[in-house]
Computed example of a mutant assay.
Amino acid sequence: MIRVMLTDDQAMVRGALAALLGLEGDLHIVAETANGQECLTAVEEQNAAGSPVDVVLLDVEMPVLDGLAACRQLKQRFPDTKVLMLTTFGRPGYVARALAAGADGFMVKDAPAEELAEAVRQVHAGKRVVDPSLAVESLSVGPSPLTERETEVLRAAASGCSIDEIAAQVHLSAGTVRNHISSIMTKTQARNRSEAARIATDNGWL
């Protein structure tokens, strides 16, 4: 029996996934959590009870602690637990970021139930599973062209901050922030900050 944990901030999605996967005779849903922090706590509790989680299905976009950050911490603290990332948004950049965080697989939520169940079995068996369409898109888009600092600046810009607010938030001078934004717009081929943020978001770079 494969012990599975579901982590998604949308209760209806969690419930639907639990119902579908629960129909599989070899899969047992041991817990449902609403964000990455709850997931880490629940996995730790299961381990302490002598019933480690085999596979965590982890949503990418969640409050408190997002899926990518949670994945990184899970693999560091519980390396034997497999992580299958799920997303509603088929953004190709997410695949590379998830795999870099240590994910064992990456699927979209609207995949047929039998495919999702098989993906759980595959990652549990030590194989890497990536949704074929996302894998192709990820290769065509390539990794993010932005540096870590540029990503930090663009994330602040995407929330509507002014140059001075961004500078204070990332601890840089206003002039340095302007230089980063200029570089970001060049790399994303965007006409302004808003468009750069949209392009980066659509590609899963933010």
Rank of each mutant, 00 (worst) to 15 (best):
E165P: 00
V108S: 00
T88D: 10
S133C: 06
S144E: 06
E165F: 02
L68I: 15
D131E: 15
L99Y: 13
F78G: 01
G67F: 08
R128Y: 10
V64Y: 08
A168Y: 00
G126Y: 14
A156N: 04
R121Q: 04
A117W: 09
T81Q: 12
G102F: 03
R91E: 09
G142I: 11
D66W: 06
V108G: 01
T151L: 10
H171E: 14
A168L: 11
G105I: 12
V64M: 07
A156S: 08
A125C: 06
F78N: 08
L74F: 11
V64R: 08
A103D: 07
A103I: 04
C71V: 12
R121E: 01
L65Q: 12
A157R: 03
D104I: 04
L65R: 11
V64I: 15
E150P: 00
V64L: 06
C71I: 06
L86T: 10
I166M: 12
L116K: 00
S162L: 03
R91I: 05
P79I: 14
P92L: 03
A98L: 07
V123N: 03
A96C: 07
K109T: 12
E150V: 09
A70S: 14
L86S: 07
Y94W: 02
Q76K: 11
T81D: 09
K75E: 03
R128L: 15
V129M: 05
E152Q: 14
A69C: 00
Q169T: 13
D164V: 12
A69H: 06
A135H: 15
P92H: 05
P145I: 14
